[in-house]
Computed example of a mutant assay.
Amino acid sequence: MKKKKFGNSNLETNPIIFGGNVFGWTLDEKESFKILDELFEKGYRTIDTADVYSRWAEGNEGGESEAIIGKWMKERGIRDQIGLHTKVGSDMGQGHKDISKSYILKAVEDSLKRLQTDYIDLYYTHWDDDKTKVEETLGAYQQLIESGKVNHIGASNLSPQRLLESLDAHKVHELPKYEVFQQQYNLVERNDFEGEIKEICEQNGVGVATYFSLASGFLTGKYRKEEDFEGKKRKGFVEKYLNRQGLAILDALDKIAEEHQVTNAAVALAWIMNRPGVTAPIASATKSSHIEAFDEAIQLQLSEDEMNKLNEVSKK
């Protein structure tokens, strides 16, 4: 499987990144191992997780996703074949977000222990705490890079101003650079990325990974009326998309998918993969058919007319 480079860095990724938020949440350990084995066999070796995953599941404390991935890599003996991405700074039960140096240096040790590894390929600032100076945060990452515990750093969900401040601090103070920016982006949520963030990333050679690439499953087409998501764990994420525009987007996906004999998910992912400024979408899977949609997306060639149709129907 052909790899892509994030921005101007030497960090490579599969054309689709697997989102590990499902591990310990909608998939238990045994089910997670099955999906991970299938991904590995098909050549998907880039995995995105976070220390906070899957704290929101009943009975969980956070770190469950990292622990499952770590155990799987250890048992299979394949750590050196995995592009491992995780994050720091989200609320792990302490009641607030934190990207101070002291917090990062402690949190990374917890993540490394759960992941059963001595290094992380890409370490993200998950959320901004809106108070720590960017120089302090980047200084923590510099220490981790120099010690070999982290290879590259990225950021997620920063405001345009804070992202620019961080990139300026890299240039002025010779601190590590955010090589990747992670932002919500899909056919029903375009505004967070398109605009200032996209421009900043392009101008500074920063790669982009998109999360909620399938809008929590809405773009697969399985949620078309209210009863479809009643009692489902993703209800709170998808019910807001059940409106006139959301249904129009699904209709466009239906027609293009039928034309190419692929799934709606494949079309939605292929659209992102062909959008300017995007390196790779992050997507999750809970069954084999979902992974098959990844293969379809990578092979799918959308025409200019099809891209224009999707662009138009999803425009706010």
Rank of each mutant, 00 (worst) to 15 (best):
K34F: 13
V267W: 04
K222I: 09
V206M: 01
R234M: 13
D91Y: 15
K316P: 15
F40C: 07
I197H: 10
K30Y: 10
Y178A: 04
G24P: 15
F212W: 13
S65R: 11
E58R: 14
R234T: 13
W271V: 01
S147T: 13
K71S: 11
N14V: 03
K5T: 14
G154Q: 00
F18G: 12
E29T: 14
Y123R: 12
E312Y: 08
R114K: 15
I282D: 05
Q184L: 03
T286N: 12
S159T: 14
K34G: 02
E199T: 14
K309C: 05
Q245M: 07
G148F: 14
K113V: 05
G70H: 11
Q203V: 07
L164V: 08
H173D: 11
W56S: 15
A107V: 08
Y44W: 06
E109W: 12
D98N: 01
K71I: 05
I16C: 04
F18L: 08
D110V: 13
E292G: 01
D91S: 01
G195N: 10
E146C: 09
K74T: 03
Q142V: 13
V150A: 13
V278M: 04
A266L: 06
E230M: 07
T279F: 00
I153K: 00
E202L: 09
L310C: 05
